[in-house]
């Protein structure tokens, strides 16, 4: 058992006034130390719900979450402090993830104080080290978030997450609110930090091109289910699920070379159905051009078609 995080049959339902939203249904995956596990999907696919449930921000409706073999299927309020130290998260919106009324020093000192990681005299030094890890100058400690650019704010959020020296970092669309020139710097920093510290990343994004460049393994979600899971190279070179193919074929790219890597253009049709009113059978069948009778009736299970390559589709069933 060298897995850092194991998620087994995770389910999360929300009761709303319009009915029960099945946000996450039967999601299973594992992350190893030093690995980036990518979770892609469109809005409403449940990818952020998975992340938040792993973090304990939601109580799961079913399934198990294991961290280093220890069951952590509980809300974060009931998790021991030592566990909080191991799991940290970087949120999507750098604007709201830093308290506008607190200086960068105060923001970075919080985890150090809560977990009593360094004694009072070394606090100052440690804050500077943290800023250094994310390549920000030491005088940024005295600034307030409003004086920072979006990318710099996100760097501070990463430094805060690293302050407790976690072994797993959940990255919830850390760069989707930022420009590509800033994204590039953040991604490179994240990759370097991972190599130096052998961190596990649960990386969530809707950007497939970005995923191609950072993830070791990728899972694609649609309406709360994982539709396909494979090592990154296989996932992008031999996508099997019609949804993966449709998504890959509609991403805009900037060179002929990339154009050749995309599956033949599948004109995307329809919209994502409401998660309150899921279609029967395979949830993707109303938008799927391969759908036939059984897809309307029966929900396909996850099948391993080659080692480490799992697909939820009747096309690849016995």
């Amino acid at each position: 058992m060298d897995e850092l995080l194991v998620v087994e049959g995770l389910r999360k339902f929300f009761a709303t006034s319009r009915g029960i939203v099945r946000a996450v249904q039967d999601v299973s995956f594992a992350i190893r130390p030093g690995e980036t596990f990518g979770l892609v999907g469109e809005s409403g696919s449940g990818k952020s719900t998975v992340a938040y449930t792993v973090m304990g921000m939601y109580r799961p409706s079913g399934g198990r979450i294991l961290f280093r073999g220890q069951d952590i299927t509980m809300p974060h309020a009931r998790r021991p402090l030592a566990l909080k130290k191991e799991l940290q998260i970087v949120f999507q919106d750098p604007g709201s993830s830093l308290n506008p009324r607190r200086s960068i020093r105060e923001i970075l000192e919080l985890p150090l104080r809560v977990h009593r990681l360094v004694d009072g005299r070394r606090l100052r030094e440690r804050v500077e080290e943290l800023l250094n890890i994310v390549e920000l100058p030491p005088d940024y400690a005295e600034k307030y978030p409003r004086a920072l650019g979006g990318g710099e704010k996100q760097m501070v959020a990463i430094a805060r997450a690293l302050a407790t020296e976690p072994s797993l970092l959940v990255l919830d669309e850390p760069t989707s609110a930022l420009d590509v020139s800033i994204q590039a710097k953040i991604i490179n920093t994240l990759v370097r930090i991972q190599k130096e510290r052998h961190l596990g990343y649960l990386f969530i994004t809707h950007d497939l091109s970005l995923m191609r460049n950072i993830a070791h393994r990728v899972a694609i979600m649609y309406l709360g289910r994982i539709m396909e899971l494979a090592p990154a190279q296989v996932f992008f070179e031999r996508p099997l699920h019609p949804y993966t193919q449709m998504l890959l074929s509609s991403i805009p790219v900037i060179s002929e070379e990339e154009e050749r890597l995309k599956p033949a253009k599948i004109v995307s049709t329809g919209e994502i159905p409401s998660p309150v009113n899921l279609p029967p059978g395979c949830v993707f069948h109303p938008r799927c051009r391969e759908a036939w009778e059984v897809c309307r009736r029966e929900e396909p299970g996850m099948r391993e078609v080659e080692v480490g390559h799992l697909v939820r589709c009747h096309l690849y069933g016995a």
Binding site: L81, K84, F91, L98, N99, L110
Partner: peptide
């Protein structure tokens, strides 16, 4: 519900804080 409050909770900060 702001992310900075969520972050503080996930770090394990006290309710008072």
């Amino acid at each position: 519900n702001e992310y900075f409050v969520q972050s503080a909770e996930l770090i394990g900060a006290s309710k008072f804080h």
